[in-house]
Each structure stands twice: as structure tokens, then as C-alpha cells.
Nucleic acid binder design. Sequence first.
DNA 1: ATGAGTGCAAAGTATTTGCACGTAC
DNA 2: GTACGTGCAAATACTTTGCACTCAT
Lengths: 151, 151
Amino acid sequence: MSVDLKEIKNEFKKFLKRKNMKVTQSRLDLIDLIADYGKHFEVEELVNWIATRTDRGVSRSTIYRTIKLLQEFGVIKEVIKLSNRTIYEFVVGKAHHDHLVCVECGNIIEFVNEDIEKLQDEVCEQYEFQPIHHRLEIFGICSECREKKVT
Amino acid sequence: MSVDLKEIKNEFKKFLKRKNMKVTQSRLDLIDLIADYGKHFEVEELVNWIATRTDRGVSRSTIYRTIKLLQEFGVIKEVIKLSNRTIYEFVVGKAHHDHLVCVECGNIIEFVNEDIEKLQDEVCEQYEFQPIHHRLEIFGICSECREKKVT
DNA sequence: ATGAGTGCAAAGTATTTGCACGTAC
DNA sequence: GTACGTGCAAATACTTTGCACTCAT
């Protein structure tokens, strides 16, 4: 991975200090853990995965609390909301992208499309709306699942 | 309203029969009630609103169960997922559109942009992904809230 | 030293489900 | 008449919170 985690953690420390919050081991660990995990995750999934790494543990509550901070800090995004599931992503070192979500197998495909981004900005200008973030989810059936169906 | 509710209810009856399900008063009533409500809604909101119309009542469970059916039938969509809220919309008689959501006041602005739709289709083709539906939510601050802030 | 952070268990939300009764067919 | 639908209350799933203890500053 080409992301400089040390640098991110330093920035996060500054962010915490600006907010008069404490730089704790759990908070820094969580950045490492999520980066190590290396893919989209749900909280439950992350909790279980962290539990297998016996060296350091972070409780569910702290995970929820820290995820909120990391979203505010900008390194984590809620990318998919499907029924009652929430899927997060560590977005550092990636261009902004959106997602194709297969409703059959749950597979998530990332895609980047600058033109869609531009058009969104135009829409916002038109409505004098100041965008903060957006989420585009296209639900459907992925190529693999389509092939299975034909067979 | 230019929507022919009677026609929709007839189609819905056919849909139910195709699925070997029963055409019940509650199911038909709910279409009228949601159409009457006439705007984006959350389940809680709809339950309360229906409670004020003392003539006909539909229980929360039936609302949840029927909303699922109506989504499958295609007249209702989950348009916004914000933290743990789910906002639905009666989409009959409307062109497909997406939403700007003000994070300050909660106001929802609908917009239609054919070019974004086209680009999405292109992306899907590129990935041999068969789209079923999509949701584009742009979160930000609406013009009214921006003005308030400046003042 | 002091107040913020953490983990736990309990409380909140939103949604789903089991069951007894009612209704469509 | 039978099976599916409905309403209620209980159960579930996800997330938040109160509190006592711990740790960063």
C-alpha cells in the first residue's frame, strides 16, 4: 500500500488536539487496524477480525465512537447503506469513487467517473447547494452472477 | 395529482394475484394513504399521520410488510438513508430523480439529470453489470441554510 | 491531579417475527 | 373451510449511552 499511515496518524493527532481531545492508543491503533484490514467493512466484521489479533483489542463502543471521529476527520466513509447494513471504507489514498453493489452475491465494485462528479457539481450550483459529500450506489447483478443464471 | 390511482391499484391487484397473494383492504388502502400523504416519508411519520385519519387504520407491521411489497411492485423507493433513518418515496408519475439532502435543516430537494443517468448506464455496461436501481444522495447545505449562516 | 476515554452492560431505535384471530377466496 | 393477512407484543439487529475505572496530559 502506498499510503503513509504514519503521516495520517500525525494529522489525526493534530486533528484531535485541535478539538481538545486526547491522543489515545485505541484511536491510533484503530487506524492501523482498519488500514490492515484493507477492504470495505461492517462494524461487526471489524470487531471479529480485531478479536483474532490477540495483541491489541478495541471494544465495539470505541470502534463506533472512533469511526465517527474518523469520518469527521475524513479518512472513513459510509459507502453503502443496504437494508440495515452499513458498509464503511477507508478512503485514504484513493480517488473518490462510487459503487456497484451486486444484490445476488453482495460483491462491491468500485468505479471512478469524473464526468458524473462534474455533473453533480453543476446540479449543486444550480440549486445553490453546497455539497459536503455524496453517495452513489447502483444496485444490480454483477457479471459473474449473470453468467451463473444463464448456465 | 395526475396519477391514476385506480389504475395503479388494479395493476397491484394483478401483481398480488401473480404472486398468489391476497388482495386485502389494508394493502389497497395503503396505496391511497401514501398517495394522499404526498411527500417523502418515514415509517414512523406515516404511522402517526394515518392514526389521525380515524376512518381507516393500518398497523405498523402491516405498513412495513406492505412497503416491501410496494417496493417490489415498483411504486415505492427507499430514497434516503441517513444514519438510522430511512426515507421512502411514492415514485409513481414522476421521472426518475435523485436528491440533495440538507444536513442542517433536513430539507430534501429533488433533481433530474438525464446525463448522470446515461453515464451510470455506461459505467454499468463497462462492468457488464445489470443495474436494477440506484440511489444518489448529495449531502450538503441548502441555499436557505447558507444564507442564515452568513447573517 | 483531573477530566476525557474506555469497556461493559443496559438502553434506545428501527425493523422483523410468532402467534392467535380475522378475512379473502 | 382453509390458508394467508393482520395486529399485537415480543424478539432481533444495530447503535448509543451511563457509569465506574483507566489513562493522557
